[in-house]
Structure formats: C-alpha cells, structure tokens
Design a binder for these strands. Structure first.
Lengths: 152, 152
DNA sequence: GATTTATTTGCAACTGATTCTCAGTAATAA
DNA sequence: TTATTACTGAGAATCAGTTGCAAATAAATC
C-alpha cells in the first residue's frame, strides 16, 4: 500500500513527468489540509511555510494530483473550483439535511460497482463520483411532523 | 400548489423587489429549458426569442431564482456555474464530461433501491438524490489517448 | 560528475466569466 | 400624476484560471 508521495512519483514516472521540488511541496501541503480548499488557499499555506512557489504552479499541479487520484473535486463547489485530498478518504455519500443543515458521510462501496457497470455500458470513463442525498435527518423529520403546516 | 411564476412573484414581494418584464422573460426561459444551462446559454435562448435583455440582467436574476428555490446549482463544468430548474424532474444520473462539457442523463432506477435501503438504516428521509459523475465521454477519452505523450 | 535533453518554473500578459458602475428607465405607492 | 426606489443596459472593472516565454532543473546518458 503506497503512500501518497509514492503514488505521485509513480504517476509522474508513468507519464514521463518529473518530480520536482515545487511539486513535492504542493503535495505535502495538500495532505496537510484536512478540509476542502481551493488553489488560492493552498498557495497561501505553502507561501507561509516555504518560499518561492508561484500560484501558476499550484494551478498546474492540481490537475496532476487529480489525475493521479490523490485529490478530487469537492462537493458542489460554487464560484471556485474546490478540492479535497482523498488518500485514505474513500469516496463517500453525503447525506445533507435540508432543515438543520447537518451533513453525514457514509461510504460509497455498495454503490460503486453499480456505477462502474453503468459507466462501462455508456463508454464513459468516470473519474469522480458525487452522490448527495438531500432530505431530513431523523431529528428534523420528527419535529417536522409536529408542525405540519409551516411553509418554507 | 403555486406555479413557478407565483412563487417568484411572492418571493420578490416579500423582499420588496419588483417583478419586471426582463425578470418574467428570464423565468420563462429557465422553465423552457429542460437541461442544465449556464448564464450564457440562457441568455442566448432569450435573445433569439425576444429582444433587449442584457447578459448582466441574466447574471443578476439567477441568484434571485436560486434564493426563491426555483433553480439550483448543477455541477460546475469547465469553470462555469451551471443551473437547472427544480420542478417535477425525475431523478437521474448526470454524466458530465470534463473535457467537452457534454452532459448525458440516465435514470437512477438501478441505484435507487440501494439508496433507499441505506437511507432506512440511517433513519434518513431522503427527498432528493443527486448522483453526478464527472469524467470523460468516449469521444474525449479517445482523443486524449491519441496524444498520450503531449502532456500538459 | 559533466553533458544533454526535455520538462518545469516564475513571471507577466492574457482570457473568459462574472460583477460592478452609472446614467437613464420603469414599477409601485401615495 | 408624482415621488420614491428599484431596475436596466452597456461597457468597464475584477477575478479566477491559463498561457507564452526565457531561464532553471530533473533525469538520462556519457
């Protein structure tokens, strides 16, 4: 089981690309953030640590990490592209309560093979799966029953 | 059960905003499109019908529709905000090509029971399932393979 | 370790999407 | 009708993200 540095190295090697010091630093920074981030934020973190990595390089590296499977687009990003690292974070289902806003994540395992099969039949090369379910968590579902009539 | 024009009127009234003719036209156009769209595309449709609505107004109206609950964000593609109206849309899977931006929808039947089961075990009352898959359509996947070496 | 070659980098200029400014227009209330 | 306030179109401004280029650097080869 390779760690993320190894995965990245291998990915680059396979593509005939080089493992450079900016790329290493960016990778490190990505895995030091445990929330969603965008290019600018990532750049900010790196700058405060080490010097001399340009924003353009961050923008150039992110797609590589994406393709290497180390990073994925974050959920429903509005306005800016957002990312999250996925090493050790298997793809998940988001259960979002429309009433209290709570978010629960569960894993995608059971659904994954089904999707892979569909993708195959459509000739679609899937890279990123986002499954979000909106509704009511059990708490809100029970309170909502009490005040049936209150409209949104 | 109010129709979308009424919902919009009420929303505007509540906010002290005005129901103007450009806004009416935009609303109409939104509900005449049964796919995802972005501001530019919506603008194109409106322009071909009636005259004299500016792109800026389209951009200004979309957030209102969003807040009124008539429209929701769809998956971003190629750096652009995308929208879809919310109105009796049967659940579907979105297959979005990250290269050419094409969108295919397929139905959710095969996945649905699985999700229902999961929801039950989580005690979550699901209302809206959104399954979006980003990747490469077969066309783009094949062109991408041709220039294997010309990486960017 | 020096040389060679192709890839990378930082920088600045650029692009394309979205937002803003402003002067004129239109909806609503009185 | 008038007064008030929000709205509009047009174009300028902004902002995220991309690109061209000359210098720098990793990896391959000697």
């Amino acid at each position: 089981m390779a760690d993320h540095a190894t995965i990245f190295r291998d990915y680059l090697a396979k593509k005939g690309l080089k493992l450079t010091s900016p790329r290493k630093k960016i990778l490190e920074a990505v895995f030091a953030i445990h929330e969603h981030f965008n290019a600018e934020e990532l750049y900010g973190r790196i700058k405060s640590h080490s010097q001399g990595i340009s924003l353009a390089t961050v923008y150039r590296t992110l797609p590589l990490l994406l393709e290497a499977g180390l990073v994925q687009h974050a959920l429903r990003s509005a306005g800016r592209e957002r990312y999250e690292h996925i090493y050790g974070h298997p793809k998940h289902i988001h259960w979002l309560c429309r009433s209290c806003g709570s978010l629960v994540e569960t894993d995608l395992q059971s659904v994954d093979p089904l999707i892979a099969e569909l993708a195959k039949s459509l000739n679609f090369k899937e890279e990123d799966i986002e499954l979000s379910i909106r509704g009511l968590c059990w708490k809100c579902a029970s309170t909502e029953n009490e005040n049936q009539t209150d409209e949104r």
